[in-house]
Protein backbone atom coordinates (compact mmCIF):
# COMPACT_ATOMS: atom_id res chain seq x y z
CA UNK A 1 0.00 0.00 0.00
CA UNK A 2 1.73 3.16 -1.20
CA UNK A 3 0.07 5.45 1.37
CA UNK A 4 1.33 3.35 4.25
CA UNK A 5 4.87 3.17 2.78
CA UNK A 6 5.04 6.97 2.69
CA UNK A 7 3.63 7.49 6.18
CA UNK A 8 5.23 4.59 8.06
CA UNK A 9 8.66 6.11 8.95
CA UNK A 10 6.96 9.20 10.34
CA UNK A 11 4.23 7.56 12.41
CA UNK A 12 5.87 8.51 15.72
CA UNK A 13 6.27 12.12 14.62
CA UNK A 14 2.66 12.30 13.46
CA UNK A 15 1.45 10.77 16.73
CA UNK A 16 3.28 13.53 18.61
CA UNK A 17 1.39 16.04 16.50
CA UNK A 18 -1.84 14.18 17.16
CA UNK A 19 -1.19 14.34 20.93
CA UNK A 20 -0.70 18.09 20.62
CA UNK A 21 -4.00 18.39 18.71
CA UNK A 22 -5.80 16.45 21.43
CA UNK A 23 -4.17 18.54 24.18
CA UNK A 24 -5.10 21.80 22.43
CA UNK A 25 -8.69 20.64 21.93
CA UNK A 26 -9.15 19.47 25.52
CA UNK A 27 -7.71 22.68 26.98
CA UNK A 28 -9.71 24.79 24.54
CA UNK A 29 -13.00 23.03 25.26
CA UNK A 30 -12.42 23.51 29.01
CA UNK A 31 -11.66 27.20 28.45
CA UNK A 32 -14.61 27.57 26.06
CA UNK A 33 -17.05 26.00 28.54
CA UNK A 34 -15.82 28.26 31.37
CA UNK A 35 -16.02 31.37 29.20
CA UNK A 36 -19.30 30.23 27.64
CA UNK A 37 -20.92 29.64 31.04
CA UNK A 38 -19.78 33.06 32.24
CA UNK A 39 -21.05 34.72 29.05
CA UNK A 40 -24.36 32.85 29.19
CA UNK A 41 -24.96 34.03 32.76
CA UNK A 42 -24.05 37.58 31.70
CA UNK A 43 -26.46 37.35 28.77
CA UNK A 44 -29.31 36.33 31.06
CA UNK A 45 -28.51 39.18 33.47
CA UNK A 46 -30.96 42.00 34.18
CA UNK A 47 -28.29 44.67 33.75
CA UNK A 48 -28.41 46.14 30.24
CA UNK A 49 -24.69 46.97 30.07
CA UNK A 50 -23.59 43.49 31.20
CA UNK A 51 -25.96 41.93 28.67
CA UNK A 52 -24.71 44.24 25.93
CA UNK A 53 -21.06 43.39 26.56
CA UNK A 54 -21.74 39.64 26.53
CA UNK A 55 -23.83 39.88 23.35
CA UNK A 56 -21.18 41.99 21.60
CA UNK A 57 -18.48 39.44 22.49
CA UNK A 58 -20.51 36.59 21.03
CA UNK A 59 -21.41 38.58 17.94
CA UNK A 60 -17.87 39.72 17.13
CA UNK A 61 -16.12 36.40 17.66
CA UNK A 62 -18.65 34.50 15.56
CA UNK A 63 -18.46 36.89 12.61
CA UNK A 64 -14.70 37.36 12.29
CA UNK A 65 -12.64 34.54 10.71
CA UNK A 66 -10.72 32.46 13.24
CA UNK A 67 -7.49 32.98 11.29
CA UNK A 68 -7.79 36.76 11.76
CA UNK A 69 -8.52 36.33 15.48
CA UNK A 70 -5.52 34.03 15.79
CA UNK A 71 -3.17 36.50 14.07
CA UNK A 72 -4.58 39.29 16.24
CA UNK A 73 -3.54 37.41 19.39
CA UNK A 74 -0.34 35.89 18.00
CA UNK A 75 1.12 39.20 16.79
CA UNK A 76 -0.77 41.44 19.22
CA UNK A 77 -0.04 39.88 22.61
CA UNK A 78 3.76 40.50 22.45
CA UNK A 79 2.92 44.18 21.77
CA UNK A 80 1.26 44.24 25.18
CA UNK A 81 4.36 42.72 26.74
CA UNK A 82 2.74 39.29 27.08
CA UNK A 83 5.22 36.71 25.83
CA UNK A 84 3.68 33.26 25.65
CA UNK A 85 4.30 30.38 23.29
CA UNK A 86 2.42 29.76 20.05
CA UNK A 87 0.64 26.75 21.55
CA UNK A 88 -0.66 28.77 24.50
CA UNK A 89 -1.75 31.58 22.16
CA UNK A 90 -3.59 29.03 20.03
CA UNK A 91 -5.38 27.52 23.03
CA UNK A 92 -6.41 31.00 24.24
CA UNK A 93 -7.71 31.98 20.79
CA UNK A 94 -9.62 28.69 20.44
CA UNK A 95 -11.11 29.11 23.93
CA UNK A 96 -12.28 32.65 23.20
CA UNK A 97 -13.74 31.73 19.81
CA UNK A 98 -15.30 28.54 21.23
CA UNK A 99 -16.73 30.41 24.23
CA UNK A 100 -18.84 32.54 21.90
CA UNK A 101 -20.51 29.39 20.52
CA UNK A 102 -20.75 27.58 23.87
CA UNK A 103 -22.55 30.55 25.47
CA UNK A 104 -25.33 30.09 22.90
CA UNK A 105 -25.62 26.40 23.70
CA UNK A 106 -25.71 26.91 27.47
CA UNK A 107 -28.13 29.82 27.27
CA UNK A 108 -30.63 27.88 25.14
CA UNK A 109 -30.19 24.86 27.44
CA UNK A 110 -31.13 26.93 30.48
CA UNK A 111 -33.98 28.67 28.65
CA UNK A 112 -35.67 25.34 27.85
CA UNK A 113 -36.36 24.78 31.55
CA UNK A 114 -39.92 25.62 32.48
CA UNK A 115 -40.14 28.22 35.27
CA UNK A 116 -42.85 26.04 36.83
CA UNK A 117 -40.36 23.21 37.36
CA UNK A 118 -38.10 25.46 39.41
CA UNK A 119 -41.04 26.84 41.37
CA UNK A 120 -42.13 23.29 42.16
CA UNK A 121 -38.61 22.45 43.37
CA UNK A 122 -38.59 25.54 45.60
CA UNK A 123 -41.97 24.63 47.07
CA UNK A 124 -40.67 21.12 47.77
CA UNK A 125 -38.06 22.76 49.96
CA UNK A 126 -34.94 21.97 47.88
CA UNK A 127 -31.96 24.22 48.51
CA UNK A 128 -30.68 26.45 45.70
CA UNK A 129 -27.63 24.22 45.19
CA UNK A 130 -29.81 21.11 45.04
CA UNK A 131 -32.15 22.81 42.55
CA UNK A 132 -29.20 23.61 40.31
CA UNK A 133 -27.42 20.24 40.53
CA UNK A 134 -30.49 17.98 40.58
CA UNK A 135 -33.01 19.86 38.44
CA UNK A 136 -31.50 22.55 36.22
CA UNK A 137 -28.25 20.84 35.24
CA UNK A 138 -29.67 17.42 34.24
CA UNK A 139 -32.39 19.00 32.09
CA UNK A 140 -30.04 21.53 30.51
CA UNK A 141 -27.46 18.82 29.76
CA UNK A 142 -30.02 16.62 28.05
CA UNK A 143 -30.82 19.23 25.43
CA UNK A 144 -27.30 20.61 25.04
CA UNK A 145 -25.34 17.39 24.39
CA UNK A 146 -25.75 17.53 20.62
CA UNK A 147 -25.05 21.26 20.07
CA UNK A 148 -22.13 21.09 22.51
CA UNK A 149 -20.83 18.10 20.57
CA UNK A 150 -20.89 20.01 17.31
CA UNK A 151 -18.96 22.85 18.97
CA UNK A 152 -16.35 20.30 20.06
CA UNK A 153 -16.13 18.82 16.56
CA UNK A 154 -15.71 22.31 15.14
CA UNK A 155 -12.89 22.96 17.61
CA UNK A 156 -11.10 19.81 16.40
CA UNK A 157 -11.36 21.03 12.81
CA UNK A 158 -10.36 24.56 13.84
CA UNK A 159 -7.27 23.30 15.66
CA UNK A 160 -5.70 22.57 12.25
CA UNK A 161 -5.43 26.35 11.76
CA UNK A 162 -2.92 26.50 14.64
CA UNK A 163 -0.38 25.14 12.14
CA UNK A 164 -0.27 28.64 10.59
CA UNK A 165 1.29 30.08 13.77
CA UNK A 166 4.07 27.45 13.93
CA UNK A 167 2.31 25.00 16.26
CA UNK A 168 3.26 21.52 15.05
CA UNK A 169 0.00 19.81 15.84
CA UNK A 170 -1.32 17.10 13.51
CA UNK A 171 -1.59 19.36 10.44
CA UNK A 172 1.70 21.12 11.22
CA UNK A 173 3.45 17.76 11.61
CA UNK A 174 1.93 16.54 8.35
CA UNK A 175 3.19 19.68 6.58
CA UNK A 176 6.73 18.80 7.67
CA UNK A 177 6.33 15.18 6.58
CA UNK A 178 4.96 16.28 3.18
CA UNK A 179 7.94 18.61 2.74
CA UNK A 180 10.46 15.91 3.69
CA UNK A 181 9.01 13.07 1.62
CA UNK A 182 7.95 15.14 -1.44
CA UNK A 183 4.73 13.12 -1.35
CA UNK A 184 2.13 15.74 -0.44
CA UNK A 185 -0.81 13.89 -2.01
CA UNK A 186 -0.34 10.72 0.04
CA UNK A 187 0.34 12.62 3.27
CA UNK A 188 -2.60 15.01 3.01
CA UNK A 189 -5.00 12.32 1.79
CA UNK A 190 -4.19 10.22 4.86
CA UNK A 191 -4.51 13.32 7.03
CA UNK A 192 -7.94 14.14 5.60
CA UNK A 193 -9.18 10.59 6.24
CA UNK A 194 -7.73 10.73 9.77
CA UNK A 195 -9.53 13.94 10.65
CA UNK A 196 -12.77 12.71 9.07
CA UNK A 197 -12.67 9.44 11.01
CA UNK A 198 -11.79 11.22 14.25
CA UNK A 199 -14.72 13.64 13.97
CA UNK A 200 -17.08 10.88 12.82
CA UNK A 201 -16.12 8.77 15.86
CA UNK A 202 -16.66 11.83 18.05
CA UNK A 203 -20.13 12.37 16.61
CA UNK A 204 -21.01 8.70 17.26
CA UNK A 205 -19.86 9.12 20.86
CA UNK A 206 -21.94 12.28 21.20
CA UNK A 207 -25.01 10.46 19.83
CA UNK A 208 -24.45 7.66 22.35
CA UNK A 209 -24.22 10.14 25.25
CA UNK A 210 -27.32 11.92 23.97
CA UNK A 211 -29.31 8.67 23.91
CA UNK A 212 -27.97 7.66 27.33
CA UNK A 213 -29.00 10.98 28.93
CA UNK A 214 -32.40 10.94 27.21
CA UNK A 215 -33.19 7.29 27.93
CA UNK A 216 -36.12 8.21 30.18
CA UNK A 217 -37.68 10.48 27.59
CA UNK A 218 -40.47 9.11 25.46
CA UNK A 219 -40.82 9.95 21.82
CA UNK A 220 -37.57 11.93 21.80
Amino acid sequence: MRFWRVIEPYIGFLLQGFALTIAACLLAIAGAVLLGALTASMRSSGNKLVRGIANAYGDVFRNVPFLVQLFFFFYGLPELGIYIGAFETGVIAMSIAGGAFVSDVILSGILTIDAGVIDAAKVSGLSRVKIFTRIVLPIAMRVSVRPMGSVLINLVLTSSILSTITVNELTGAAKIVAATTFKPFEVYAVLLVLYASLTTLLSFAISAIHHRLNRFMTGG
Binding site: I153, L157, T158, S160, I161, S163, T164, T171, A174, K175, A178, F182, K183, P184, F185, E186, V187, Y188, A189, L191, L192, V193, Y195, A196, T199, T200, S203
Partner: peptide
Protein backbone atom coordinates in the same frame (compact mmCIF):
# COMPACT_ATOMS: atom_id res chain seq x y z
CA UNK B 1 -19.81 15.04 1.24
CA UNK B 2 -19.38 13.67 4.77
CA UNK B 3 -15.59 13.58 4.31
CA UNK B 4 -15.64 17.20 3.09
CA UNK B 5 -17.82 18.33 5.99
CA UNK B 6 -15.83 16.46 8.63
CA UNK B 7 -12.27 17.43 7.73
CA UNK B 8 -10.48 20.77 8.12
CA UNK B 9 -10.70 23.08 5.10
CA UNK B 10 -7.00 23.84 5.55
CA UNK B 11 -6.13 20.16 4.97
CA UNK B 12 -8.41 20.09 1.91
CA UNK B 13 -6.63 23.17 0.57
CA UNK B 14 -3.22 21.54 1.10
CA UNK B 15 -4.40 18.33 -0.56
CA UNK B 16 -5.63 20.20 -3.63
CA UNK B 17 -2.85 22.79 -3.88
CA UNK B 18 0.19 20.65 -3.01
CA UNK B 19 -1.12 17.11 -3.41
CA UNK B 20 -2.99 17.02 -6.70
CA UNK B 21 -0.31 18.80 -8.80
CA UNK B 22 2.37 16.44 -7.41
CA UNK B 23 0.19 13.38 -7.99
Amino acid sequence: TEALKNSPVLVQLFLVFFGIPAF
